[in-house]
């Protein structure tokens, strides 16, 4: 089988390449509005990762790996966790206690129910979203590595393609 033909039919590919964008945007929305609406960093991160998982189902693993290389995802993963710790440390530096909401208390009170209103909570949400999204993406990619190796070592199985 030719490499470019991997994945599902052209209908699935076209639709998922459109829907992927919408899912990604929705994930960003859930992360950014985590302090106002249901959701937050974790849920949003899962949705961000799921947009890539959809691409993986439709196009195959190689396409996704070209789109978001493993090394980059792994770095994003670390950066997300690092940013979260940084928010805590900034709270210590400016607010006097780890995780203190220094932005809300001192600099950016904000009106409730507005996007910019909860101080450091949206920042933490963004960091968690990055961390969860990248790690879930990596986990699913790792799982698919195991499956792929087994399928590749024998005859390609084109029943479903």
């Amino acid at each position: 089988m030719i490499d470019g033909m991997k994945g599902m039919t052209v209908i699935v590919k076209t639709i998922s390449s459109w829907v992927k964008l919408l899912i990604f945007l929705f994930g960003i929305y859930i992360v950014l509005f985590g302090h106002l609406t249901p959701g937050g960093g974790f849920a949003g991160g899962i949705i961000l990762a799921s947009s890539y998982v959809l691409l993986m189902f439709a196009y195959g693993r190689e396409f996704v790996e070209a789109n978001l290389p493993l090394g980059l995802a792994s770095k994003l993963d670390s950066v997300g966790a690092f940013l979260f710790a940084l928010v805590a440390i900034l709270g210590f530096a400016f607010g006097g206690a780890f995780f203190a909401n220094f932005l809300y208390q001192n600099y950016l009170p904000g009106e409730s129910l507005r996007l910019i209103s909860a101080g450091t909570i949206p920042l933490s949400n963004i960091a968690i979203g990055l961390k969860v999204g990248a790690s879930l993406f990596l986990i699913i990619l790792t799982l698919s590595i195991c499956c792929h190796y087994e399928a590749g070592s024998e005859e390609p199985n084109d029943d479903e393609e």
Binding site: S74, K75, S78, V79, A81, A85, L86, A88, I89, F98
Partner: peptide
Amino acid sequence: IPLPVFVAVPLVTAFLLPI
């Protein structure tokens, strides 16, 4: 005493290293 330092120092370094 800023006790969370004991957790924050290794945690921050741990996430810095893979970069």
